[in-house]
């Protein structure tokens, strides 16, 4: 079962994350938002980019909140695949802050690449220096604003790092079209950050295709 990182939903970081994804997505495109939560991002995309969009969400309360926003939402478990969606049917398929809480991230990402022309995957980077220090000095599973859960109740069962994702894409011949690094609710640019992004980035947004 996928739970939402609800606490994170109120932070500046998420607003920035929504802003970046909204800037990425083309106007009038067709969007599938997986694990769309309460539908805030999808609503923003429809209002600002005039997209035609549909959301998939597992949690009943979130589905109802999304429908109350006037969105088209299908309650479902993305771990079961996207078999109802045709190949390359969507211009953009979005999996925002959710990949780390799926049962089978590899299967989910392959399904997204099948259904979408471009795929947005964002996740908290577990190799961020503060996370490393937390584990190194506290000797406990790292917690932060973006990772607020205890080890025993976290929905984040498949945490990963930027380097893990590079390797994953390379092995499966997935094209990385764009990568956006965020730390403390700001986008970080520059050559230096790119080179050592895995160390300095708190959260990352990848645009991929296949």
């Amino acid at each position: 079962m996928l739970k939402q990182n609800k606490d994170y939903g109120k932070t500046k970081g998420l607003r920035l994350n929504y802003k970046i994804i909204t800037e990425l997505v083309d106007e009038n495109s067709k969007v599938l938002d997986l694990g769309c939560g309460d539908g805030t991002l999808l609503k923003q995309l429809i209002e600002e980019k005039k997209v035609r969009g549909i959301g998939v969400e597992i949690n009943q309360d979130s589905v109802i909140t999304s429908i109350e926003k006037g969105l088209s939402i299908i309650q479902g478990n993305i771990d079961e695949g996207l078999k109802e969606f045709n190949d390359k049917e969507y211009d953009w398929v979005i999996l925002n802050q959710t990949v780390q809480s799926t049962d089978r991230p590899d299967f989910v990402i392959e399904e997204m690449l099948r259904v979408g022309k471009k795929v947005v995957v964002s996740f908290p980077n577990f190799a961020y220096w503060k996370v490393r220090l937390y584990l190194l000095f506290m000797g406990r599973m790292p917690k932060s604003k973006i990772l607020p859960f205890e080890w025993y109740n976290t929905p984040n069962i498949h945490l990963l790092t930027i380097n893990d994702f590079y390797k994953f894409c390379h092995k499966r011949s997935i094209n990385i079209l764009q990568e956006i690094y965020m730390t403390r609710a700001k986008v970080r640019h520059g050559v230096l950050i790119k080179a050592i992004s895995n160390f300095f980035t708190e959260e990352v947004i990848f645009v991929i295709s296949k």
Binding site: I54, Q60, I67, S72, I73, I74, G76, E84, F85
Partner: peptide, 19 residues
């Protein structure tokens, strides 16, 4: 879900909730 899946495949506007 069979109805919903067919509607999605047929590109129709559909919402689904299992209460």
């Amino acid at each position: 879900k069979e109805i919903v899946n067919a509607l999605v495949k047929a590109h129709k506007d559909v919402s689904f909730c299992e209460i």
